[in-house]
């Protein structure tokens, strides 16, 4: 790998073909041109799908399409790598003013362009209020509340679409953040959870074909394939622990390339080695309020709401 310290301004050459590089892979210490970078990402995503047996004959795949870069790249990759797969796109409209409208338009344009069936479910339809209305006065709880409500909404719409798997666009950075957050929260159940234990508790199994691709590479793939659309940030992200963890991990990744990959791989190895440890396992039952599968009297989403406060009214945090 040679940079160009002569000041000519030429990008360093691709280590595989000599054409101008577009990417420095700091883990393998090599430059890649556009074609070799795209081929490399597609090869690794295909390898991940095979390694974790993410897709089996007869599967109908519901792809969670927010309209952002990760899910847009994911849908294009699945169409390219699995041309015969039965694909549907599902989108959750949380109702976030000034943010979701742009991503919904992007999602619609993507599915129309690919000719893929597309279904949308809104928080307003499912819970009676938009996320903005639900969170009024409690923005600090945005991400944890939205996470629970989105999970239920995605499961609901994937079920309506007749899907056997729910495919999400989580990338390596997302996965590394989740590992670290589980440790920071002392969440033993999630720390011990193996990647194969997706879904569970009556939810449609989830698979993440981009889980080994860094966020920067997902974005670059999107740019090089003409899929990248600059979209606004979620206005609630700054209240999230995830934002702080993201900053910590990208700083470590800069100083120690491969940190995020090692965090995720280490978690996979650890969870497999500890798989014999007894875990809390309660039988599934129907949520008394909505009928969804749960191990408690009420499912996680219904536990958030106060039935006496009208649709979409949160239980007071003091209760």
């Amino acid at each position: 790998m040679e940079a160009n310290p002569d000041g000519t301004g030429r990008p360093p050459a691709c280590d595989l073909c000599g054409r101008p590089g577009v990417y420095l892979d700091r883990i393998q210490n090599r430059h890649l041109c556009s074609d070799h970078f795209v081929g490399d990402v597609e090869g690794r995503v295909n390898h991940t799908i095979q390694k974790y047996v993410m897709v089996q004959p007869g599967d109908r795949l519901a792809v969670a399409l927010s309209g952002g870069k990760d899910s847009t790249v994911l849908l294009h990759l699945l169409r390219r790598l699995l041309p015969d797969a039965d694909l549907a796109a599902v989108t959750v409209d949380e109702g976030i003013d000034g943010y979701r409208d742009a991503t919904l338009r992007s999602a619609g344009a993507t599915t129309r362009g690919l000719g893929i069936e597309h279904q949308t479910l809104s928080f307003l339809d499912l819970y009676g209020k938009t996320l903005d209305e639900i969170l009024k006065g409690q923005p600090d709880r945005a991400c944890s509340i939205c996470g629970i409500l989105r999970r239920k909404a995605l499961n609901t719409i994937a079920r309506r679409a007749g899907a056997s798997k729910l495919v999400t666009g989580h990338n390596l950075d997302d996965e590394a953040q989740s590992v670290l957050m589980n440790w920071l929260r002392g969440d033993r159940e999630r720390v011990l959870r193996r990647p194969e234990e997706n879904g569970g508790h009556g939810f449609i199994p989830r698979v993440k074909p981009l889980r080994e691709i860094p966020e920067k590479e997902v974005a670059l793939y999107g740019i090089l394939k003409g899929l990248f659309v600059e979209l606004p940030e979620c206005p609630y992200m700054h209240s999230a622990l995830r934002g702080e963890v993201r900053g910590i991990l990208t700083t470590l990744e800069r100083g120690h390339p491969g940190t995020m990959r090692r965090v995720v791989e280490g978690q996979v190895r650890l969870s497999r080695q500890l798989s014999s440890i007894p875990r809390a396992s309660r039988p599934l039952r129907a949520c008394e309020r909505c009928g969804d599968p749960t191990t408690a009297r009420l499912c996680q989403a219904c536990r958030l709401f106060d039935p006496e406060g009208g649709p979409g009214t949160l239980v007071s945090p003091e209760r």
Binding site: P5, T8, G9, R10, P11, I223
Partner: peptide, 20 residues
């Protein structure tokens, strides 16, 4: 942090170790 961004020059993406 270069990990969090992509740079382009004259409309073309360039690696982070490109001299400017």
């Amino acid at each position: 942090n270069p990990v969090e961004v992509i740079a382009s020059r004259d409309g073309k993406v360039i690696p982070e170790d490109t001299f400017l």
